[in-house]
Write a protein that binds this DNA or RNA. Structure first.
Lengths: 231, 231
DNA sequence: CTCGAAGCGGAGACGACGGCTCCGCTCTGG
DNA sequence: CCAGAGCGGAGCCGTCGTCTCCGCTTCGAG
């Protein structure tokens, strides 16, 4: 929706008014790097203390740089989601609509298979405003991909973008189950799912959830609640 | 502990050496009934205190009757799993192997859709010995159902019983997402999954997990750890 | 009806845990 | 060299779930 939000600053790398001392800057990077792997492996339940330990710095340092887990996680997860958006756009460039859609699913899920934290944000829906807006970035390219495939008659007409979100949740559940043991196993179940998406199958027995319903639903049953402090 | 424990008594209803006082027996039933609905609605994260409150008795009473949450949950969940076994056996009686398999999936998932606690036990695999043995009851009828469908050429030959466990996890993930909001929505995604199970589709890209792998995998990543006291 | 004991209830002890702060010490860089 | 930015991590605080304890209630045998 609000893809025109690029009015003022590159939020990607902030050019600080007065630069950090060299050791401080280094620690900040250490923290970000540690956060990437810690949240990816252990999910959002990991503690900021954990991240600090993994980074080899004290907790105090972690809190000075980020205030709370929420901030750090948001930063790291936004990177990952941006990468997904890039992948979706690349898939849109494929001239075969079905192949594009499938490759988008594959690359997106490939990312999530190795990133438990990412799975958790994308799976739950009861996040603060700011996180919702980050996830929203995925909306547009995904919608385009779906519509294009349907227009080409490659994708059954009675599935919605919301269905793809749910599909993602399903495949992520497999990734959660298997964890590090079999990180590629999700491909098997995605493959099992694809034939049902082609046109010409039996009609579906239940109406799709509206997006509003989807949001409302998972408000009640999500894995992780961002701490109240993050608001 | 021994699996040959079927020698002596019906464990279903214990004929107590000296019977409970009438009010005590009544409270025990109250507790069981409350546990059914509380664990079904809120999952295994519900507190024994919660169950007691729902039953309208004090916590002390709850602990006198069951010792800990683990005992109560096991009792209640075993009932549910027994019901699933009955359904599987009924499905085996259908002369059409495919229809039998599908109706088994549908009835099993129908039960789980309304029972979050049941979803949690069936989804995770790191349970104490005793719980594993309860879940094992499902193994045999499910295997029969799968083999029969494959022998009849109604089910693709390269899926395993383990795949069905994973499929269940996937559909349960949908039920978790939707919760009470759309309790029937899982049917839509089961329907999406079925075409991929028929023979004649593209071969699957990754080998199935062995049952041992499946167990090992989810030991690390499960929703709920039975409290240490239950051992 | 009486009385001993089985049973009840729920406040609260206890332990675990995660978020975050505080302050004496360290290191950077002008 | 030294002012102050930055560091570290012990530990405070609030929360939460489990389970105990003991004075009171209710049952039911005599």
């Amino acid at each position: 929706m609000t893809s025109t939000a690029s009015t003022t600053a590159d939020t990607s790398v902030d050019t600080p008014a007065r630069p950090l001392r060299r050791d401080a800057a280094r620690n900040r990077e250490l923290l970000l790097a540690a956060a990437r792997t810690v949240f990816a492996e252990r999910g959002l339940e990991a503690t900021l203390d954990d991240v600090a330990k993994a980074a080899g710095v004290g907790v105090g340092t972690a809190y000075r740089h980020f205030g709370n887990k929420f901030e750090l996680a948001t930063a790291v997860l936004e990177e990952a989601i941006d990468a997904m958006v890039v992948m979706a756009e690349k898939a849109l460039a494929d001239e075969d609509p079905w192949r594009g859609l499938v490759s988008c699913l594959e690359s997106a899920l490939g990312l999530q298979a190795f990133n438990r934290g990412l799975r958790e944000v994308l799976t739950s829906v009861s996040d603060p405003e700011s996180v919702l807006r980050i996830k929203e970035k995925l909306e547009e390219p995904l919608t385009l991909l779906v519509q294009r495939a349907q227009a080409a008659g490659a994708l059954r007409a009675d599935v919605t973008v919301g269905d793809f979100k749910v599909l993602t949740v399903m495949v992520c559940a497999v990734a959660d189950l298997a964890g590090e043991t079999a990180p590629e196993i999700w491909r098997r179940y995605l493959a099992l799912l694809l034939p049902g998406l082609r046109p010409g199958n039996d009609p579906l027995p239940v109406e799709a959830l509206t997006l509003a319903q989807l949001d409302a639903a998972s408000t009640s049953s999500c894995q992780y609640h961002w701490g109240g402090t993050g608001g």
